[in-house]
Amino acid sequence: MNLNYPKYGWGLPVAASTYARDIDFGIRLIHYAMFAIFILWGIFFTYLLIRYRRRDGVPAEREHEHHPIKSLMPDLIVMVFEIGLIAFYAIPVWSRIKQTFPDPKDANEINVIAEQFAWNVQYPGPDGKFGKRSPDLVHFSNPIGLDRSDPAAKDDVVLANEIHMPLGKPTLIHLMSKDVIHSFFIPSFRIKQDAVPGMDIPVWVQPTRPGLYELSCAQLCGFGHSLMRAEVVVQTPADYAAWLKSQEPAPAAAAQPQNLGF
């Protein structure tokens, strides 16, 4: 199957995950409201500037009484809008995206281990279990420090800067970092989450459209920050299974961890 990048333009990139639509709804709604508020407000502002410009012999009018309610009217409107947004949009959608996770059994589970300046991806292989990793085993032939002596590691597939996801199934990603904070951002999926060293942060996404997508790093991580690009490949489940099968398990690690002499 021929996979292509979507056409990118000036607006939001194509929405290619289940919750992308929800996030876009909010972005659009808020922007329509913002435009409406700004334009109404701008008309009133311009009117005031013209109507009350200085004219000879016309003194300023002092207000006889102050109506606090009047000056709080715009507040009231903004507040109702915001409360609505919070109660009916932000909190429910947030809990669906960030607080509830797919069952690992029904999901395609992967580890993403960020480093300066690459994204390493660990697939558990047919046994569905991730091999153990250890910082002492990290070597340039074994970027994630996979422990080959662990039976669960035998069939693990490790790739750099290439993430494959099947359609129609959520992908559960364990986000980790080897060195500094990175941020996992796939614009078309509207997914973004910092990868923090010392933490394993779960995120999930379910792609809705086959194709190639870009993964970028959204958190300043050093001089190569802008070079931290990876390719996300969304395939039909059959293609995905075929692809995974064709992958060689990660090569055996060097017997002794070597210091690279940096």
């Binding site: 913002m34 700004f38 947030w94 995206i97 960030k98 973004k192 959204a218």
Partner: peptide
């Protein structure tokens, strides 16, 4: 304008996309 554009950043859900 500065204040209004703070709105989609202050709403956690839309901030997922717009953050950073």
């Amino acid at each position: 304008i500065g204040g209004l554009t703070g709105l989609p950043l202050g709403i956690s859900v839309t901030d997922i996309y717009l953050h950073d």
